[in-house]
Design a binder for these strands. Sequence first.
DNA 1: ACGCATCATGACCGTAAGTCATAGTGTGGA
DNA 2: TCCACACTATGACTTACGGTCATGATGCGT
Lengths: 216, 216
Amino acid sequence: MSSEERRRKEKENRKNSILKAARKLFFERGFKSVTVDLIAAKAEVSKGSIYLYFDSKEEIYTQILISANIERHKLIEGFSKMEGPASEVLMAFARDYVHFFLENNELFRILMTFMLHSENMNLTEDQNTQLIHTTNENIRTISEILQKGIDTGEFISSVDVRQIQNAIWGMLNGIISLYIYTGAPDKRTERIHAMVREGLSIFIKGIKADSVRQNI
Amino acid sequence: MSSEERRRKEKENRKNSILKAARKLFFERGFKSVTVDLIAAKAEVSKGSIYLYFDSKEEIYTQILISANIERHKLIEGFSKMEGPASEVLMAFARDYVHFFLENNELFRILMTFMLHSENMNLTEDQNTQLIHTTNENIRTISEILQKGIDTGEFISSVDVRQIQNAIWGMLNGIISLYIYTGAPDKRTERIHAMVREGLSIFIKGIKADSVRQNI
DNA sequence: ACGCATCATGACCGTAAGTCATAGTGTGGA
DNA sequence: TCCACACTATGACTTACGGTCATGATGCGT
């Protein structure tokens, strides 16, 4: 039915405009200092309406990461199909990943908050699953690059791809946390990227086929 | 003066017993669901007294990490003086570090909360400095181990020790976050340790002198 | 024994998340 | 055209919690 369809669409729009307002506020001031009343004011709806579309402030916060994940997924699909040595693709991916979260500081905080406090986020099973799914979808790229490297003989085949994916992901997240903490803008950014480059290239050296001949 | 000294001591005791009560509660229920009234009840003091010793709930939370850092420092001093190949010492350190935070989940959350939200923690400059200092003191061990490895020729000398220290630290923290998120106890613990072992050993391979002969 | 300084207390305040009774709006049928 | 009904919007209200402060207790030096 056309009217029902329009209804659904309008509902989706309303939800999105709340999300958009919330996103802007959270990015400007962080989770704690943004009140639901503020979001309501910014989105030009009443507070009650917010709770018509979301169950809690935490859900709004989470939802922002989910939609960012989905958007981002489209942008990074290319990496796993990229030409050239897997090691270079991996470096490029890492650079992009770090760049993305340095530019979107608060998104990273959402990710970490979720990782560290998933139980206290009052999310439904569905929302939980969705967040995990979209996140996994994005980091799986690392596995794909690693696998390509193994297939072409560039990387040794004795590594557990999934585990290395997680180790690399962990390293990137850890480095980003470090940056967010030391916090300074500008110059610091370049140092972080240097750290990622150096750290990852050592890592790559460790899985390169020709550097471990004696171990095979 | 004896009476003034006793006063100071009693004050310190009071502070410690509040800290002890708070620690127990935070470890059981996490930051958010522990109220200051609860801490007061557990420590058998009034709420007002709590604020005689601490400026904010966040300060209590932070102080717990600081004292844990200090205690832990005594325990890990040994690592940098440990006999044997630096790579093995590094592995042992990593295992210990991860083990510590897996056992003390909430301490890790405090660390990360501080790293991600240091501005919103309402800490005085002093408290801030103290936390940074004690944390640095503990992770500097990594640098010391790396340096020893370089000095004995086990590791290549072309690496930036400080940067590698941070990369390794980041990796460990990232992996711990991942664990806390996937959360399951028991079996998961062994998988995490396996991930740390594999990740770090690849890393070590990347900085070992004899695996990069062709790069020198 | 008195006065002063320090410490302890819990009623109280302000703020913010979340709820709900009430009001508005648009749609389908008479 | 108008009515009834379902769905949506609203903001005053409730509740909970961090933090404060006026009042009272305690003990030390004189």
